[in-house]
């Protein structure tokens, strides 16, 4: 089953103050099957993040369709879905993870993960239990559970973000440069986490500037330069 089908996607930004319109990206086509992991590669400025943010609707797209097969609504075009539909999908079906934390101030890691569960309607007891499991699963040091994440390292913030997003058991998880600016050991951890998510059947779409690192985990790679999808096997044989 095709989970996500992006057809002729395009996005431009108009900056009124400068009277400028910038075409960020156009003519993007790819699709992801259920349970697959697709990596997007391309140099910086090629529009990778624009594609991802448009799927999550942090950006409004201008052209094309983003067809997502929702458990609740069936096929929906995320470019045109209502705001309330998007909020529902974000709550229950689509997760977004980056290294940047954008959370309520003065909230501990544990509370952040619990909140993600509570807003889905879990009981406090279940939320507490699931939150601890998730923090443990993604190897966040137990000493950090009851502290505010402001001073966390990039890797720790990322793992907390992954925990917040994945306790909701999203069907589709968007990963925005999860390995950028991490050292080798932290990257290895991210790779292991992605393997775990994949093993759980989560469909994954991720942006990577160093896709080689994901070799063997990615099923398909979409190259922003050639606008083509290659199977992971092909990359392995090239290398």
């Amino acid at each position: 089953m095709t989970m996500l089908d992006i057809r002729n996607f395009g996005k431009q930004f108009t900056i009124h103050h400068l009277e400028k319109t910038i075409q960020a990206v156009e003519g993007v086509n790819f699709s992801i099957e259920e349970g697959e992991f697709l990596g997007i590669v391309g140099r910086s400025g090629s529009g990778k993040s624009t594609v991802l943010k448009s799927i999550y609707r942090s950006y409004l797209s201008d052209a094309g369709a983003i067809l997502y097969d929702s458990a609740r609504y069936g096929k929906v075009n995320l470019a045109k879905a209502t705001e309330r539909e998007m909020l529902y999908l974000r709550k229950y079906e689509i997760g977004y993870v980056s290294q940047f934390l954008n959370v309520m101030p003065r909230t501990t890691s544990r509370e952040l993960v619990e909140k993600a569960l509570l807003e889905m309607g879990e009981t406090e007891e279940a939320a507490r239990c699931e939150a601890e499991k998730a923090l443990d699963h993604f190897e966040l040091d137990e000493a950090l559970w009851d502290t505010y994440p402001n001073t966390f390292s990039g890797g720790e913030k990322l793992r907390l973000n992954i925990a917040i997003a994945t306790v909701k058991k999203p069907r589709l998880l968007l990963l925005d440069e999860p390995t950028a600016s991490l050292d080798y050991a932290s990257k290895m951890k991210v790779r292991e986490i992605i393997e775990k998510l994949k093993a759980n059947g989560t469909t994954l779409l991720g942006i990577f500037h160093d896709i080689e690192f994901m070799e063997g985990v990615c099923d398909k790679v979409y190259d922003m330069r050639t606008r083509k999808v290659t199977q992971e096997v092909a990359i392995a044989s090239e290398g």
Partner: peptide, 22 residues
């Protein structure tokens, strides 16, 4: 203008909203 809060902040459409966000 109206929209999802993060979209208003990250991709404001109207000239005034852009000025406000920037």
């Amino acid at each position: 203008e109206d929209g999802l809060t993060d979209q208003i902040l990250e991709d404001p459409q109207h000239a005034y909203t852009q000025q406000l966000v920037y």
